Simulated scan of single mutants.
Amino acid sequence: MESKEILIAELTKLLNGGTAHVGLQDAVANLPFNLLGERPHKLPYSIWQLVDHIRIAQWDMFEFSKDGNHKSPKWPDDYWPKETAPKSEAEWENCLKQINVDLKAFIELIESKDLFEKIPHGSGQNILREALQIADHNAYHVAEIIVIRRLLNAWKS
C-alpha cells in the first residue's frame, strides 16, 4: 500500500470516530428523544445543541475545502442552534443524516485531492488540515455528549 493510501485509510478511520474512543453514531445510539434538550448541572448546552453544532461546523469545513465561493456562517452565533431541543424526531434524524452525508462526501474529497496542496481560496489551509480539524472538533464534542449522557444516567455502564 502506498503512503497516500495509508494516510487516507487512517484519516477515514479518524473521521469516522477513530479507534481509541466512541464515535458520534455510538454516542447517540439508543438515546431517548426526550433527553436531547436537557442541560444537566447548568451546562450551557444540550446534546441537541452539540450535535447540531457538529453538523454546522463540519458542513462549513467541508464546503470551505471544496468551494471558493463558500461563505462561512457568522462565528459564533450561527454555529450554535438557539433551541435546546429539536422541534421533532424528524429534525433530529435529518441532522444525523446530514452529518453522515457530509462526512462521506468529505472522505470522497480527501480520496480525490492532494492532501498537502494549499486550498486556493484559503489562507494557507490544506485538505489534510481540514480533515484533522473535523476529526478533532467532532471528537471533542462527542466526548461532551457522553458526559451529558452520564449525567443524565443515559449512558451504558
Rank of each mutant, 00 (worst) to 15 (best):
E10T: 13
P76L: 05
A90H: 15
N153Y: 05
L14A: 11
A57P: 02
Q25A: 09
L11F: 04
E38M: 12
L50N: 02
G37E: 15
E111S: 06
K13I: 10
H141W: 00
K82W: 10
L132C: 08
W59R: 11
V51D: 02
I56P: 01
W155F: 10
P32I: 11
V147R: 01
L14D: 09
I148N: 06
A29R: 11
A27V: 00
E63P: 03
S72C: 11
L36Q: 15
K82C: 13
K74R: 08
T19H: 11
F33P: 15
K97E: 08
G18H: 07
Y140S: 05
I8P: 09
L109F: 09
Y79H: 03
K118T: 03
T84Q: 12
I110D: 02
Y45E: 11
H70Y: 09
A143R: 00
L43I: 15
S46H: 10
G18E: 08
A154T: 14
K87C: 14
S88T: 10
K74P: 01
D78H: 01
G17N: 08
S123M: 06
N153Q: 09
I107E: 02
I127W: 00
I127K: 01
V147D: 07
K97Q: 08
H70L: 11
N138F: 03
E108W: 07
D67F: 14
I146Y: 04
Q98C: 05
S3Y: 12
N100W: 00
N153H: 09
P76M: 08
I8A: 02
I8Y: 06
A135Q: 06
H41D: 10
H141L: 03
P32C: 15
K97N: 05
E89L: 15
L109T: 04
A105N: 03
E111L: 03
S46T: 13
L15G: 07
P44C: 11
R149Q: 14
